Amino acid sequence: MSGEHSRSLSPFHRDPSPPSPEPPDDLVLTLDDETEDLLDSQAELVLVGRVLESKSYRQQAVTDALVFAWNLIREIQITPMAHHQFIFQFNHLLDVQNVLDGGPWAVTANLLILEPWNTTDRWDFTHVDFWVHFKGIPPELLHLELGFQLRKKLGSPKSVMLIQGSRASSPQAFLRCRISMDIRKPLKDTL
């Protein structure tokens, strides 16, 4: 089409300055101007996702599994892009918030990293919010303040909960923390 051009989106480019070499073609997403303008105008209703493939999966599994798991209020449009990336266009802000708060999500045992649409058209797909349980803490130390301190050791803290109750007639108490973790770093199994 005459006069039409597209913008390349690199999901791995972090900082627009200083200039870096162009990413390989297999890591570049291309959107036409009309699609990009639509997504920019509805930015708060759009998430961009990338499936970290460790097992093979079908693209249809992304739609089938996630729509069922997310239990959305309104319909969603899922657009597959190149290299395990997808655009999720929601029709209700509450759906977006529930999906972000309910994660992490997986597609056939492959981690799905979600990031909000942004007008810079850059996503690094390096951080995921995880729920971390801290168990085996002596009862006298089991306070929210300890949770605030522990979560900072693992990543960027989001929230902390003190869970107390019983399961199978056995008392339980632990800290549950929501932490944004850099998936490029190895997980810690002890602190």
Rank of each mutant, 00 (worst) to 15 (best):
M1G: 03
S2H: 01
G3D: 11
G3Y: 00
E4M: 08
S6Q: 07
R7M: 11
R7I: 12
L9I: 15
S10I: 11
P11H: 03
H13K: 04
R14A: 15
D15M: 07
P16E: 10
S17C: 05
P19W: 04
S20K: 08
E22I: 15
P24L: 15
P24H: 14
D25F: 00
D26E: 11
D26P: 00
D26I: 08
V28P: 01
L29N: 12
L29A: 10
D32W: 00
E36D: 07
E36K: 03
D40T: 15
A43C: 05
V46E: 00
L47T: 15
G49D: 00
R50G: 07
E53A: 13
K55P: 02
K55Q: 14
S56H: 03
S56Q: 08
Y57N: 12
Q59T: 14
A61K: 02
V62M: 01
T63K: 07
D64L: 07
A65I: 15
L66E: 11
F68V: 15
F68S: 14
W70L: 06
W70I: 15
W70Q: 08
N71Y: 09
N71V: 06
E75D: 14
H84F: 05
Q85L: 10
Q85Y: 02
F88L: 14
F88R: 02
N91I: 10
N91A: 12
N91S: 14
V96Y: 00
V99N: 05
V99Y: 01
L100Q: 11
D101K: 07
D101P: 00
G102S: 08
G102V: 12
P104F: 12
P104Y: 07
W105E: 06
A106L: 03
T108V: 11
A109V: 08
A109H: 11
N110L: 02
N110W: 03
L112D: 08
L112G: 09
I113D: 06
L114I: 13
E115S: 12
E115W: 01
N118H: 14
N118F: 03
T119K: 06
T119M: 02
T120K: 03
T126V: 13
T126L: 02
H127A: 09
D129K: 08
F130G: 10
F130M: 05
W131E: 10
H133K: 11
H133W: 01
H133P: 01
F134M: 06
F134H: 04
F134L: 09
K135L: 08
G136I: 07
P138Y: 04
P138W: 05
E140V: 13
L141S: 14
L142H: 05
H143F: 12
L146R: 06
Q149P: 02
K152R: 13
L154F: 09
L154S: 08
S156M: 09
P157W: 04
P157T: 13
S159K: 06
S159I: 11
V160Q: 02
I163G: 10
S166Q: 15
S166M: 04
S166R: 11
S166I: 06
R167T: 15
R167V: 15
A168F: 04
A168N: 06
S169E: 15
S169V: 05
S169I: 07
S170D: 12
L175R: 03
L175A: 14
C177H: 04
I179M: 01
S180D: 06
S180I: 10
I183G: 05
K185M: 10
K185W: 02
P186K: 05
K188A: 09
D189T: 13
T190A: 10
T190F: 06
